[in-house]
Design a binder for these strands. Sequence first.
DNA 1: TCGCCCCGGCGTCAGAGGTC
DNA 2: GACCTCTGACGCCGGGGCGA
Length: 106
Amino acid sequence: MMAVTGDETETGTSGDLTACQLQNTGSSLPQGGAETSTQEFVKSANPSQKREHRLMKNREAARECRRKKKEYVKCLENRVAVLENQNKTLIEELRSLKDIYRHKVE
DNA sequence: TCGCCCCGGCGTCAGAGGTC
DNA sequence: GACCTCTGACGCCGGGGCGA
């Protein structure tokens, strides 16, 4: 499902910090190119049909937009969890290194 | 049980930004 | 400039939790 696995703790600190980007998934129709049936419909439709069509497209776009946003937030939450784990591990490592250093100095 | 509040999802509108 | 997609903002609705 998501790219963030949640079990990267010590390595790969900079690896996928660019994850969780909101991006176009390519699910929308291409805007250029050959004439689509949609475009043909829009050309021949009356104003109220055009409005219905526009509302329907926007309805679907809003649904998709919300789905992507939820996915993005979930991805961010996963990253937070991963980074918190990394942070804990690093703090622990630092503590033990300090300990070792102190024993050597004494 | 009822009224209230909160939350999540939905549809719609408006506006920004891209493409032709 | 016309048309398109995407997304923030707004209001509405249904469901669940909670106190009276």
